[in-house]
Simulated assay, not measured.
Amino acid sequence: MDAVSVNTVPGGALHVVLRGEIDFTNSAWVRKVICDAVAEQRPPAVRVEMAEVAFLDSSGIGMLVDVMRAAGEADAAFRVEHPTSRVYDQLRTAGLLAAFGLP
């Protein structure tokens, strides 16, 4: 199972699904996959589904920030959706909830 899948949904939004562990071993590759899709498709929105993420380290958080920036450069709305409670706590501690569209 890949750590990332990227699909376009009706309306043109990019739907990104992250799975498993997103850490220093794969975050650069995940970043490239998503940012390349954003640059090529220039979607109106980028939604990152995180319900299946078991672990996220600082490089994974950095990857999300880079994807948010890439979305901004493409004038696309950016949002993280359904983070696990552990990931949510990490994003809260990093001060990124509002930036990622989370309550």
Results as ranks from 00 to 15, higher is better:
Leu91Gly: 08
Pro103His: 05
Asp2Ala: 12
Glu21Lys: 00
Thr84Tyr: 07
His82Phe: 11
Val30Tyr: 00
Trp29Gln: 10
Tyr88Lys: 06
Asp75Met: 08
Asp36Ser: 06
Arg19Pro: 05
Pro44Met: 07
Ala74Cys: 08
Leu64Gln: 02
Val67Phe: 01
Gly101Tyr: 04
Val6Tyr: 03
Cys35Trp: 09
Val6Arg: 02
Asp23Asn: 15
Arg42Ala: 14
Arg69Met: 03
Cys35Met: 14
Val16Lys: 10
Ser27Arg: 02
Val6Glu: 01
His82Leu: 12
Gly20Phe: 01
Phe100Cys: 11
Thr25Lys: 01
Pro43His: 08
Pro83Gln: 07
Pro10Gly: 11
Ala77Asp: 15
Thr93Lys: 15
Arg31Ser: 06
Val17Gly: 00
Val67Asp: 00
Glu40Gln: 07
Val9Met: 12
Arg79Ile: 10
Ala76Asn: 11
Leu18Cys: 02
Gly12Asp: 05
Pro43Met: 05
Leu14Glu: 04
Phe78Thr: 15
Met63Gly: 05
Ala13Ser: 12
Cys35Gln: 09
Ser59Thr: 15
Ala39Tyr: 03
Phe55Cys: 06
Pro10Phe: 03
Ser85Glu: 15
Val87Gly: 05
Val48Cys: 05
Glu81Ile: 09
Ala94Leu: 07
Asn7Met: 10
Val53Trp: 03
Val87Phe: 05
Glu49Thr: 03
Glu21Asp: 03
Thr93Met: 15
Met1Val: 02
Ala77Ser: 14
Ile61Lys: 00
Leu64Glu: 01
Asp2Cys: 06
Val48Asp: 03
Thr93Pro: 09
Ala74Trp: 08
Thr25Tyr: 11
His15Ile: 00
Glu52Asp: 13
Val87Glu: 10
Ser58Gln: 07
Val6Asn: 02
Ala28Leu: 11
Glu49Arg: 11
Ala51His: 10
Val4Thr: 02
Lys32Arg: 09
Phe100Val: 13
Gly72Met: 06
Val6Thr: 14
Gly20Lys: 01
Glu49His: 12
Ala54Leu: 15
Asn26Phe: 00
Val4Ile: 00
Asp23Phe: 12
Val48Arg: 05
Val65Arg: 00
Val80Cys: 14
Arg86Trp: 11
Ala70Met: 05
Ala39Gly: 06
Gly95Cys: 10
Val33Ser: 02
Ile34Lys: 05
Met50Trp: 07
Gly101Asn: 09
Arg92Phe: 10
Ser58Lys: 09
Val80Trp: 11
Glu21Thr: 01
Leu102Val: 12
Ala39Thr: 13
Glu73Phe: 13
Met50Asp: 06
Val17Trp: 00
Leu97Ser: 08
Arg19Gln: 11
Ala94Gly: 09
Arg19Asn: 07
Arg42Gln: 14
Ser5Asp: 10
Arg92Trp: 10
Ala74Arg: 13
Pro103Tyr: 09
Ala70Thr: 04
Val17Thr: 10
Arg19Val: 04
Thr8His: 09
Asp89Leu: 12
His15Trp: 07
Thr93Trp: 14
Asn26Cys: 01
Val38Trp: 06
Met50Cys: 12
Ala51Gly: 08
Ser58Phe: 04
Glu81Pro: 06
Met50Gln: 05
His82Tyr: 13
Arg42Pro: 03
Asp89Lys: 15
Glu52Arg: 14
Leu91Asn: 11
Ala77Arg: 11
